[in-house]
Nucleic acid binder design. Sequence first.
DNA 1: AGCGAGCAGTAAATCGATTTACTAAAAAAT
DNA 2: ATTTTTTAGTAAATCGATTTACTGCTCGCT
Lengths: 356, 356
Amino acid sequence: MPRSKDDKPIAKLPDAGSGSVSLKALAAHLGLSSATVSLVINRSPAAKSIPPKTQERIREAAQELNYRPNLMARSLRQKRSFTVGVMVPEISEGYAAMVMSGVEDFLLQEGYFYFVVSHRHRRDLIEEYPLLLQQRAVEGLIAVDTACSEQSTLPTVAISGHKEVRGVTNIVLDHNRAARVALEHLKKLGHSRIALVKGQDFSSDTEPRWQALLSVAADLGIGVKDELTIQLESDSSSPEVGYQMSKNLLARKVPFTAMFAFNDISAIGAIRALRENGKRVPEDVSVIGFDDILSAAYQNPGLTTVRQPLRQMGLIAAETLLQRINGSGKGKYRKEIVVQPELIIRQTTAPPASQK
Amino acid sequence: MPRSKDDKPIAKLPDAGSGSVSLKALAAHLGLSSATVSLVINRSPAAKSIPPKTQERIREAAQELNYRPNLMARSLRQKRSFTVGVMVPEISEGYAAMVMSGVEDFLLQEGYFYFVVSHRHRRDLIEEYPLLLQQRAVEGLIAVDTACSEQSTLPTVAISGHKEVRGVTNIVLDHNRAARVALEHLKKLGHSRIALVKGQDFSSDTEPRWQALLSVAADLGIGVKDELTIQLESDSSSPEVGYQMSKNLLARKVPFTAMFAFNDISAIGAIRALRENGKRVPEDVSVIGFDDILSAAYQNPGLTTVRQPLRQMGLIAAETLLQRINGSGKGKYRKEIVVQPELIIRQTTAPPASQK
DNA sequence: AGCGAGCAGTAAATCGATTTACTAAAAAAT
DNA sequence: ATTTTTTAGTAAATCGATTTACTGCTCGCT
């Protein structure tokens, strides 16, 4: 087959072909050993004996050939993956999504990626996922509203985990303050017969929040009557849960002028039940939610609620975790970080109708 | 130092110590080569010459020592990571969260994990993330409501991507059908002066949905007047966007009895604006949203809306992607998969007040 | 007795980067 | 002129699994 005489190997375009350039290929291209190239590219202190000109040459070639180190190989060698795992009950819930938004912000900024798994409150998954994640070489775990057991040897940060578990940093809301701002707000408006909603048993927030509520109510001289108390039960993240329970409550015919819900979702369900029962919100009954998920503000009328700084909690969780991973802390870690709630007054609270 | 005579090596507890057992350690424990152990554990056909008794022995030991292969090492060798990347505009938005819920369901079932990144519509991130993900050895990409450019050599599935890009399977809603069910519903109720809301320019759904709307409106004999049309602008995922635009619309003083919003979020904002303007929903103005995000059902009154099967779209995306990754399809792939919308009639639509 | 077939496994290369210990040559110091 | 130091790098081990190409060995068959 005739070909021109000075047949050169066809010049590969810098970015040509399919596979990416390996360190070895780059080194060969430069006529250097891969060791040298690696040292320079990683700006290792051991590269101090390589003259600046060569370093420059290496970096330029890396750029040109679009060299990108294979992170699998690097991770294998260094035993670092720059990856963490995030466990949530359910990704599509406003609560978890909001927290993750904060988590992501911080992690990506620091060059970390994360795996998300949602366990939907299934015990077996809550046990298994940390192991799977560990196998995936994550360097740490963030558990959102998940009571994880002790097994994991990984640095772990829990958001609203509550149970004190060895090796786990808990990020928790100041529930006392939360109960106080909400109840004081209602009291100041003139409410005294207040219905209270307790969370589902599986939520880690349920108990501490309830205890705080009782203690603050006592402190403010607000009576807590069993007849005005309901507890959520179904494992669903729809307002349906709050709706049903509120119907039960209304069926008891015990009068009340305000309601403090366990979360925004149940508050929304409760409002529907109240309306169907002929009660106007806030004229006849004031309602306070909890969390301030996105759709709280979207309600018509806007839902008055106790805001948890969810994004910020995610951010703090990520920051704390990376500190624990990279820090020289030698197994020392903070057991608890408390964040503050904020009362967001919208349109579902008002003074009680003077008399009915 | 006196010790009992038949001093045995202190038996290590099965799960003792810190580090996990490596294949080599397991092989040593068994007195076999790591090759053999690997073949048996992976049920490789090449293990057929290993007698069942030995196989049994190996598997038992693996169980006992709690052997878990290092996925980094395996990935490096096999060039498979069992990981995909998911790009969304913003994780905390109901739309993306819902899709991801479906994606996750399928992926985890199949033994895949996924990285999430949210680009917040920033061009540079939209360009960069695919590369970062590729570097993280993901085997494929799912892009949600993101107009990704062509560069990626990875198998990609886009949800509401729309632009036809080489190598990308698009999962799209049947916008014509969506427009039809919504407008027919309004027409049947007796509405003819209908305000229409066009989406932000950055959303990939904006154009196709608008075109469908125009074509269906023409078909149904519904006039589309510029004075009754608004377009969303701000890059925010709050109802504020729809609220402002609706105020503008109302300021024009052009009467209308119904509104078809671009999405649920903007519908919610619009409802607020309508109410402040003294209009009742649905008595004076009917409103239809789009998407059926979780909080659509939570509205009081419940928002009538065109549901996109978001979870299912996520599921299909994941399934299609894995097929493309694992399939023998040789670069063949479906260009488009169309899913059907569903009209969810709640309480924000009703016949127009007979006369005003 | 000799041959091939089957059995039970193993040695060693490989994936791609990192990292320690080392070398050869040149420059500086004595 | 020799020794020491510095310069400019390199060879080779390593991370932990996978996988291909072998190696002895035993058994049956002619």
